[in-house]
Write a protein that binds this DNA or RNA. Structure first.
Lengths: 305, 305
DNA sequence: GAGATCGTGTTGAATAACTGCATGGTTGAT
DNA sequence: ATCAACCATGCAGTTATTCAACACGATCTC
């Protein structure tokens, strides 16, 4: 019979695109992955992959198997979750992942809450971007991810994941206090058409570009920085403006002001929790998700008040 | 991750009742099965079994896992079946099992038909009883079984199997030609209350006992024989009567006559096909099932005419 | 209480799995 | 056109796992 580990390798291969990348994600050598795939192909009784240049492409049979692999792995996760409810509560290390700005307001408080609540959970928090969150979640490197979905992210009903809306992180225009727009109560995005922009790190930059495009102009981006504090420093020196989510604190930059964007609801980035499908029932994961939701509620309430 | 083989072992253990029996059914040593179960328990993260005298009993967690194991294995069978439809048609050895009387009219003709039809199938026919059919089907010793369900057989909606009605094998009272009931057009079962009975082999004997009980009397069984030809020989020598399904030929016993039983439909034994759930879509299995249904139709039509 | 049955440790051999390296093929830039 | 980087895969060699055989303690039956 088949080892679900082989199916898992197969799924990671599809997600990563190459044997080498899959091997890296699984902490294996490319050779091992290659052999596992051959064995899977033998046990499935069909060719799953075919050479495509210097990489591999899934055959029709491979794509068929992939669908079943998702179902099988989810079913196994469900089984594990249900078993964990019936057995003795064992100590569990939960690996939480999130984008940089989510750690301070969300993941760190939740990890602390879980520890104080006496849950038999040891939380490990890691910072990553959206893409890696999905990949490592699939490769079982993380158990829970807090992320902002991108246009190429798996859809909410993806068979491999279980994703839930956590909160909407509202975006404000951030400008120096002496900026022409600083005194406004709200500002329309179109009013910034002539402004120069600071482009934040990759994930967020794409969102800003999409919003400006929707508002009818292409943002004139000059400077670029991955770190929000660097972005804010650039804004503070009058080098441009930027849209900054409210999870990013401006406390370190007294010379800057947030100008809310017009619209109801105002433009925001959606923040989701994501776990492997089937695993959301596991006690440790369920507890962490609940704590995350609760914390997200507090954050939202604080912003409103 | 988990090997489905371990879940398979776990399922066979449940079906067989003891580690030793499961090991025998899987062609393994009891020690190997014991170790596999330990590994499964470790990977499931819960105790699945607990000692119960000199045998094992499933824990609550074990019973939970068992349900998931059935689903997982069926899902894998489905995947295999669907893959076999997309890949190149490979040579396949199909292992068919059936009770003794089913082989002549059903399994042997079907095996011949499949061979002549040019299907890439090598059929292997084995005779067994109902209980072993289910067990070997689960242990992957057989692929298709033709059987008569008993009171302790898995129900039709059992998660592990896919069972289909094949035909109803009508039962007749068989008596010597000079018997008092021989000349009747039909006979009510109650009319045989004072007769002495020949008890056929175990499976069939239970059915006869149940029918007589339903008719209001306990059959007075004197002789016993597993083989139908032996039963008929006993009847021929005036030692008793018996209910004999029509699949059993009386050709070798000119001195005997069938007296149809009253009732519409008349008493009969249900004959089912049984395969592992999910496997019925596999081309080879689907072809064999179709051939079986067709052959069963011919048999039924011949009996009617 | 003797004998049979059952589950499970242990041990050694066979098997399988993984790493590291080498090879052949492919892509893309110089 | 050439070269370097990249990728999948085949081939040892090593490591880890799996299984059968036997032994042992526990349990049930007669």
């Amino acid at each position: 019979m088949v080892d679900l580990g082989l199916l898992q390798t197969f799924r990671v291969l599809e997600e990563q695109g190459t044997v080498t990348a899959a091997a890296h994600a699984l902490n294996l050598s490319p050779s091992a992955v290659s052999q596992q795939l051959r064995q899977l192909s033998r046990q499935a009784g069909a060719a799953l992959l075919e050479p495509d240049g210097r990489r591999l492409r899934l055959t029709v049979a491979g794509r068929v198997l992939l669908g079943h692999a998702d179902v099988l792995c989810a079913q196994w996760e469900t089984a594990r979750a249900e078993l964990a409810q019936h057995g003795a509560p064992a100590r569990r290390t939960l690996r939480l992942a999130g984008f940089a700005t989510s750690i301070g307001p969300l993941l760190a408080p939740v990890a602390g809450t879980l520890a104080r609540a006496g849950e038999p959970i040891q939380a490990i928090v890691t910072e990553t971007d959206t893409r890696n969150s999905y990949q490592q979640l699939l490769a079982e490197g993380f158990d829970i991810a807090v992320l902002t979905p991108l246009s190429d992210s798996p859809p909410t009903d993806d068979a491999r994941f279980h994703q839930e809306h956590l909160l909407d992180d509202v975006l404000d225009l951030v400008v120096p206090a002496d900026h022409a727009l600083a005194a406004r109560g709200t500002v329309d995005l179109a009013a910034t058409e002539r402004a120069t922009w600071i482009s934040p790190h990759h994930d967020q930059g794409r969102l800003i570009h999409a919003l400006c495009t929707a508002a009818g102009f292409a943002p004139h981006t000059v400077h670029h920085a991955d770190d929000w504090q660097a972005v804010l420093a650039l804004v503070r020196h009058g080098l441009g403006v930027c849209l900054v989510p409210r999870l990013v604190s401006l406390d370190a930059h007294p010379g800057l002001v947030r100008v809310p964007l017009a619209g109801s609801p105002p433009p925001s980035r959606r923040i989701l929790t994501c776990v492997r499908r089937g695993s959301s029932g596991e006690p440790a994961i369920a507890a962490a998700l609940t704590a995350l939701r609760e914390r997200a509620g507090q954050v939202s309430a604080a912003r409103v008040g």
